[in-house]
Amino acid sequence: MDIPVDFATLRVIWWALVGILLIGFALTDGFDMGVGALLPFVAKTDQERRMVINTVGATWEGNQVWFILGGGAIFAAWPFVYAISFSGFYLAMFVVLAAMIMRPVGFKYRSKRPNPKWRAFWDWSLFVGGFVPVLVFGVAMGNVLQGAPFRLDSDLRAFYEGAFIGLFSPFALVCGLLSVSMLVLHGAAWLTIKAEEGPVTERARLFGEIAALASIVLFAAGGFWVAFGGLGFRIEGLADAAGPSNPLRGAAAVRAPGAWLDNYGRHGWMVIAPVLGFVGAALALYGLRFNKAWAAFSGSSASAVGIIATVGLSMFPFILPSSFDPRSSLTVWNASSSHMTLFIMLIVTLIFLPLVLIYTAWVYKVLWGRSTTGALVTNPDLY
């Protein structure tokens, strides 16, 4: 069968699609997690906390589809990346899953008993389910930028040479805190448009302003570290964009401090991503400060898109570089599935992704409106 799209183009398309899925996860489930992380702080009474939970209660399960799609796309399109990252970062992934398990349990059981201690326990469980995964995702991204300590032998068997505690380096923690501030900002902006006006939205605006400032500072600090902290990898020679998926064949990768900025010199338009990260956070800060809810939410969304896109564009064509053995680094050109697999998956995606987007938009339209404390009296089945 003749495939109408060449192998190199399909690899770039799937690199972009995985990025889009991760951004979709940040924009949808991201504000759910941000709201969970804010729950104990923006809501003081039981009614306020129930009202905050109901701002995401109707949609959080559907939003997690983006997380599942992202993981599935990595598994199908970049099997080497999936195998090495999920095995090397096994304990970190276990922490994330354990924390995320607290979310559905917290949503379902929190209001089953009127006991204040019972409800407080599940409120803090929702906080853990929102805060911990976001922190670990950011830390993981910091480790990707630094390079993960793995190697491949001649049979392409992967060996991870790091330890769990080693994931939490200073730079990785900066990335983790940036991830937290980015999605706390997004959650605070969401509360300003979904929660009834009052003490909750006032507190959300206050915490959101702090998160917006933290996002700007941490994003700038991370960029400075990338530029001058000795981070970066580069491919020596000319990579075969349509070559076989074998990380040990073809052009080798080497450490190259500052190389994560090379793409911006070659393609000036890429600077749009970091600019969007800063401008979005500034717009969100403006919206929160002057009570313009949609400006705040648009800004927090734009900031998340810009920050995530900055990482992907800076690293291209690298997906998972190796700090232990740079020659084992995984790139867009050497770690993908076969030509036929990528093409079949692209056809499936072109059919079903629009359906997911249409259905999601319809759900939000049907369920739109502010969550209020009064609704808790008229509808006792709410969370």
Rank of each mutant, 00 (worst) to 15 (best):
G187Y: 03
I319P: 02
G229H: 11
D325P: 07
D29P: 01
V12K: 08
G229S: 06
G106H: 09
R266M: 10
F80Y: 15
G222N: 10
A304S: 15
A375D: 08
S215M: 09
E48A: 10
I235Y: 13
V180P: 10
F127I: 09
F278E: 01
R203V: 05
V95P: 02
A163P: 07
L173I: 15
A92K: 00
L276F: 03
V81N: 06
G369W: 02
P4Q: 07
S125Q: 14
Y109E: 14
R110A: 10
V128N: 00
P149V: 04
L177V: 14
K292S: 09
A221V: 06
Q47I: 05
G250H: 13
T201K: 02
I347H: 03
V184M: 12
V12C: 00
Y82A: 01
T59F: 01
A282E: 00
G71K: 11
A158K: 02
G243T: 14
T192E: 12
F150N: 12
A76T: 14
A58Y: 03
I3A: 10
G36C: 03
R113Y: 07
M93F: 15
Y383R: 08
S87T: 08
F228Y: 14
G222L: 03
A241L: 06
V180I: 15
W362K: 15
W122Q: 06
Q146R: 15
I20S: 12
A335I: 02
A204V: 08
G229R: 11
L152K: 12
V363M: 02
D32K: 06
R289W: 14
G130K: 15
F290V: 08
R289F: 04
R151S: 14
G243Q: 12
G34Y: 00
A8R: 07
L288C: 05
F228C: 09
G198Y: 09
G312A: 13
L285E: 01
I319E: 04
D32V: 04
P354V: 02
G250P: 09
L145I: 15
T378G: 05
A58K: 13
T201R: 11
V217I: 15
T360Y: 12
L69P: 00
E202F: 09
G280T: 03
P114V: 06
P133I: 08
V363W: 00
V377P: 00
M1S: 13
V139K: 04
F7D: 14
P199R: 09
A242R: 02
M141V: 12
E161R: 07
